[in-house]
Structures are given as structure tokens and as C-alpha cells.
Amino acid sequence: MSASPKTDWKKLIWALMGVAVFFVLPNFLSRFSIYLMALIFTTGLLATSLNMVLGYGGMYQFHHAVFYGFGAYTTALFLTKTGLPGWVAFVCAPLASALLSLLIGLICVRLSKLYFGMFQISLGSLVWAIIYRWYSFTHGDDGIHGIPVPDLIASGKSAYYFALIVLVVCLMIMYRIVESPFGRIFQGVRDNPERSEAVGVNVRKHQLVGMIIGGTFAGVAGSLFVVVEGSVFPDLLFWTLSLEILIMCLLGGWFTFLGPLFGAAIIVLLRTFVGIYTEYWTIVLGIVLMLLIFFLPEGVLGYIITRYRSRRNPKFQEG
């Protein structure tokens, strides 16, 4: 219909230009900036994967970091404890996260919306506690450091390119899913689960599949983290990080596709610079969240889009 091929082309050209810029960018950046960018790509992928469940599915996915950390630990353990080729680790991480999402999802999607959120926080914390306490296997609190990342992607710059490529590929797949029949119906489930059921949608199954998709991409982000950072620690599965991702989605705009990516960039940069002056990062995060709730509940990108639409089409503001 009116979503004409023209707008599609326009979007594609913008996207290509964006990617091209990021491809030449490392030539002009310091080593630290390159690392920071790679971290933003990783975190951006993580936030986008959460938004698949939260923004498009309307589910209270309050402990998304678990799938991220689980993917990261899977990668790290494969690389340090087995002699298997590196790519095996990178394939297994998303699979492991998908499996974990399936397990947690099977229990959670049967529950009401609030119970879903509460029990997911609890189950996620169980996974965290196990990794935290299983010293002989995971090195507990110490984490695992100096992980032997495959040579091809070990240096700062090549890690940057690896993260960029993976991010772009994953974003493309996720965009495709959002625009697929599944994605359309998933958004219907978000807006009105009861009505979705009345048009013949198996709501719980949809939510479960949505959770698995989100968890899988979080797992991919987790293994990217290993590439970028070279280490893992239990904080990757801690609840505070889940809140941080949630704030990224909210900050960027959780009803937009690219919003969470923006949000991730802002939060990662903020954390880096706030970290120079103070150790009280969480209080800053809490205040950011409060400000968002009161003044910008649609997020930065959401706000811009609403303004843009209402300028182009004044009728939009009615009702």
C-alpha cells in the first residue's frame, strides 16, 4: 500500500551511508574511542534485543541481562575450557541463551503480566546466584579474564569491525522480524492480548517465541562483549544491568526500532564520563530514569518522530 518502495529505498540509502561512515571512522579515532564505539555497538544490540520483547511485545522483560551474561559466559567457557575452534563458541552462545529463554519463558508466559515480570527477575537472579557461587566452574566473583579470543578479531580495530558487522546483520534480521507477519501480530498482542486471542492468535506461544528471539540476540551481544572486553564477570547477569538496558530502551524511545540503539549510546557514554568524576553511577541512572518518566516517556527518538509527524500531518494530534 502506501508504504511505498520509495521510502524503503530512502531508508536503505540512509542506512548504507550510516554504515559507511562507521566503516571509515576508526581511522580518525583514538584506541580508547574505538573500544568505546565497539562497546556501544554491543550494548546497542543488547538494548535492541530487549526492545523486541518490551517495545514490540509489551512484555515485562525485567531481567534481560541474564540472557546477555549467559551468552557471554558460554562464549568465555567454550574459549577457555575447550580446545574447540573459536567459531563454535560464537555459535553456541546464542543457542545457549535461546535455550535459557525457552526455559524461563515456558514458566513465565503462563503467568499474568505482573507475575511474569516479578518471576523473571527472581529466576534471573537464580541464574546469577549460581554463576556467582559456582567458583570451581565460573570463577565466581573474580570472573574470567584474558579470554583467548580468535586472532582474527582480537585487536581493538578488528574487534570494532567485527562488532559493527554483527550489529548490522542482527539489526537487519530483527527489522525483518518486526516487519514480518509475526512481528505485526506480536505488536497486536502487545496492544491487546485479549483481542489478539479473539482473532485466532495463540498469545502465549507468540510471547514465548518473542522471548526466545530477544534472548537469542542478547546472547549474540554477550559473545560480542567477550570479543570487545576479553573478560566476563557476574555483574553481566546482575539485575542492575537489566535496569540499565531498560533505561536505554526508554531513553531512546521504545516504540521505535532504532531508539534503543541511541539510548545505549547515550548511556554508555554517560557512564564512561560520569565514571571519571564519581563512583555513584547508579544514582545518576536512577535520576535519569525519573526524569524520563516525568518528562519524556516516549524517549528521545519517539519524541522527535511524534513532533515530526504532527508537523507534517497536523491531524495526527487529534484524538
Partner: peptide, 13 residues
Amino acid sequence: SRRKHTFNLFSNA
């Protein structure tokens, strides 16, 4: 939903 495309993940809706 009626056409049973509910779990079609990759076509363009």
C-alpha cells in the same frame, strides 16, 4: 492470523 502466517518470521508483512 486466519491465513496461518502467525509464525512467519521473515516475509515482508
